[in-house]
Design a protein around this nucleic acid. Structure first.
Lengths: 244, 244
DNA sequence: GATTATGATTTGTGATCACACTTGCTTTGA
DNA sequence: TCAAAGCAAGTGTGATCACAAATCATAATC
């Protein structure tokens, strides 16, 4: 019996080949829409049509409608009584509601992560911070997309360390819901004040590397509150203007 | 111009007619599966097939597959690499993870609700408690289904008062995820110890009617922890038995 | 001239079909 | 006797079609 030899050969093959994976079209559509949502590529109150998205993504309607359904259940999109779907509009209440939930859940996640992150994980988020500085160095081109991506990587690298398979999907849902809102805030920050966002992240890293969960939570709260309070005042200003 | 008169007539009609609503088949399938999941009608690790469910629900595969997709995204079901879907199996880690998340989020929700519940809402949950006692009175028929339903009504009547459109869907997702687990616990309670579950609920009502958020939170934590710690010890006992 | 009817277009929903992959069983060969 | 190949039933995925409801533009009516 040459079974052992065959087995060995198979292992040799497996070592060289990467698993091809079998991602469905629906998964790709879903990821693409998620990316667009978190990145704030869709505007609040914008309505999306199945056929329109299918054309834009060059597929049939089938994968799109299932992806939309999934996004609706996680409240990233909203189903109108007309059965059309749109990006949820921003209101003051919703903003406060989202921030409170994010403080609660992401705060818990980072406190858990603080006790579990090793030098390996700390190094990873420091690398991300480094890329941030690098990007800032050549500031002539303010790449908001990249900024959003790096911010996301930084936070989720931490959350992944919290070891909770239940909390992480909830945080993803929260980001999906607040994505369309904070995009405008990040853009305004990057354009105007230039109050270094990275300094908040540095405070988080410091707290995490000393395993200080409480400090990490507080720094995180400061970090995620900023765009929300900014948006809040902006929204109130608009409301006041509409009054006149 | 009799526009005002017509408008008035329309309003009069609207006052008498109930909106008919246009529930889709997919929505019904989704609700039905949710109900089954929260009620624990499916066992952990059970595999569900699209065609099988479609036959059972007497529809085509289309509404079922979309409903399954939605349930997968809220982690109520699990997509295997084989592309079959099953209800997630129970593990010790998952149990602890779920309980921690529920304490965190439902605790916050009830604390918020404590400050917002008026006599009207208090009366509603007291009614539910009354129905509970009534059911207990004729205890010859231990109706676990009704017990699960009443428990759900009691809790969600409270959560609805928290005023957070963001937290409530998350709590629903958590119930969906813990449903298959706690069913066995409730059943065991109802059968064996008969330690009055209602007494925990009464403590919650007392705390809420005095607007004591902290007490309400603590009572709630005691209430939802009970089935989890029960299941936990049972699972550990099983693990020990498998060892031998 | 403003409002209501009417028709065409667009959109979501559900059903059905074709295809690829998985799974379990049978058959074949050593 | 046992393992591997081959076959058949079952399953998820995507495409397409039919239909009903919504939307919008045009026409008709007061």
């Amino acid at each position: 019996m040459q079974k052992a030899a065959i087995e060995k050969n198979n292992e040799a093959i497996a070592a060289q080949l990467a698993p091809v994976g079998r991602e469905t079209v629906q998964d790709r559509v879903y990821s693409e829409l998620r990316r667009a949502l978190i990145g704030g590529l869709f505007e609040p109150s914008q309505v999306l049509t199945i056929r329109g998205l299918a054309d834009a993504l060059v597929t049939s309607t089938m994968p799109v409608r299932e992806a939309l359904g999934r996004l609706i259940t996680e409240k990233a999109l909203e189903a109108l009584p007309n059965r059309s779907v749109r990006v949820p509009p921003i209101t003051l209440e919703r903003l406060d509601d989202l921030l409170r939930a994010r403080i609660l859940i992401e705060g818990e996640a980072i406190a858990l992560a603080a006790a579990r992150m090793g030098p390996r994980q700390i190094a990873t988020i420091e690398t991300i911070l480094g890329e941030w500085d690098e990007m800032r160095a050549l500031k002539h081109k303010k790449d908001v997309d990249r900024e959003v991506t790096l911010n996301q990587s930084f936070h989720f690298e931490i959350y992944r360390s919290c070891g909770s398979a239940v909390l992480i999907p909830m945080i993803e849902s929260l980001w999906l819901q607040s994505g369309p809102c904070i995009r405008v805030a990040i853009y305004a920050f990057s354009e105007a004040g230039e109050v270094d966002t990275a300094q908040y992240h540095r405070r988080i890293v410091t707290a995490l590397s000393t395993q200080d969960g409480q400090a990490a939570r507080e720094s995180l709260v400061a970090d995620i509150s900023r765009p929300f309070t900014f948006l809040r005042s902006k929204l109130q200003a608009n409301a006041a203007k509409d009054q006149t």
